[in-house]
């Protein structure tokens, strides 16, 4: 489908916001759930883009910028794949192939991020010069320039995809054979595991593994929603913290054998 000029401008703005947020990481406009939905909203393809956003979000759960490391670029992946989905006019049926496009884009976006962060090094030198003069306005100007640069990082590729137009994008997608899209959908179901694995590796200690097991088993009961599981999780965390404190004070002066049953028998 073709977009009118107002829709194109709105898509550009959403892409710009997503690009800014890709580095700021505050409002989360770059998260697939938000970015894809907004693209869907402004182009009148809300439901397919919403489903695309939800699917991509599950893949991207563990992607985070830590220290100087850059995660795969959720912003470019969500914005570009949502635009491609909209242009293809396939609706919900196009979600699987849009996801297949999103993942390589996330890697490409990584390169763009590194380039922009390198360019920003020059910008802070301009800030140094402005600080030397005591020129507050100039420092502010360069900060805002740097943020806009991050916005353009996503907005320009988005505009390029829009410029290529619906025709080539649709041809590309419809030329994909069924075995490929089905296979990609199956792969998409498994890719989620990578994100979880990243998160688990960060958090797992001997102490908290049992909670993973409880969560896994309880999730088999399909009547419990995620909100319900969250409530159980919070309750478990509170119980554990409270109990571990009691244990700490109780064992303070006593013989701490680590064998409560043995202690009881001894005291008889």
């Amino acid at each position: 489908m073709d977009l009118n000029i107002i829709q194109i401008i709105l898509v550009f703005i959403v892409a710009f916001l997503a690009g800014m947020e890709g580095i700021l990481d505050e409002f989360q406009f770059h998260q697939p759930l938000v970015a894809c939905t907004l693209i869907g909203l402004v182009t009148g393809n809300l439901v397919p883009c919403l489903i695309l956003g939800g699917t991509l979000q599950l893949i991207a759960l563990g992607w985070a910028n830590i220290g100087a490391a850059v995660a795969p670029d959720a912003a470019l992946a969500s914005v570009a794949s949502a635009i491609i989905l909209v242009l293809s006019g396939q609706g919900k049926a196009g979600v699987a192939s849009a996801i297949a496009i999103a993942v390589p884009l996330a890697v490409a976006g990584l390169l763009l991020t590194i380039i922009v962060r390198t360019l920003a090094t020059a910008i802070v030198h301009f800030m140094d010069a402005a600080a030397q003069e005591g020129n507050i306005r100039k420092v502010e100007f360069w900060q805002i320039t740097a943020i806009c640069m991050q916005g353009l990082r996503i907005a320009i590729p988005a505009a390029l995809i829009l410029a290529i137009g619906a025709g080539p994008v649709r041809d590309l997608l419809s030329s994909m054979p069924l075995w490929l899209t089905d296979g990609l959908a199956i792969g998409g179901g498994m890719v989620v595991a990578v994100g979880y694995a990243m998160v688990i590796n960060m958090m797992a200690t001997r102490e908290v593994w049992p909670f993973f097991v409880i969560g896994f088993v309880l999730a088999c009961i399909s009547q419990i929603t995620l909100i319900g599981l969250g409530a159980i999780g919070i309750a478990l965390a509170l119980i554990y913290l409270a109990l571990s404190k009691q244990g700490g004070s109780g064992n303070g002066g006593n013989s701490n054998t680590g064998d409560p049953l043995g202690d009881i028998i001894d005291s008889y």
């Binding site: 688990i200 908290v208 909670f211 993973f212 969560g215 896994f216 999730a219 919070i234 478990l236 554990y240």
Partner: peptide
């Protein structure tokens, strides 16, 4: 610690679901 307990619990269920 509380966050990592909650996190691991939820991760367990997410992996399943």
């Amino acid at each position: 610690k509380g966050a990592s307990i909650l996190g691991m619990f939820i991760l367990g269920s997410l992996v399943n679901r």
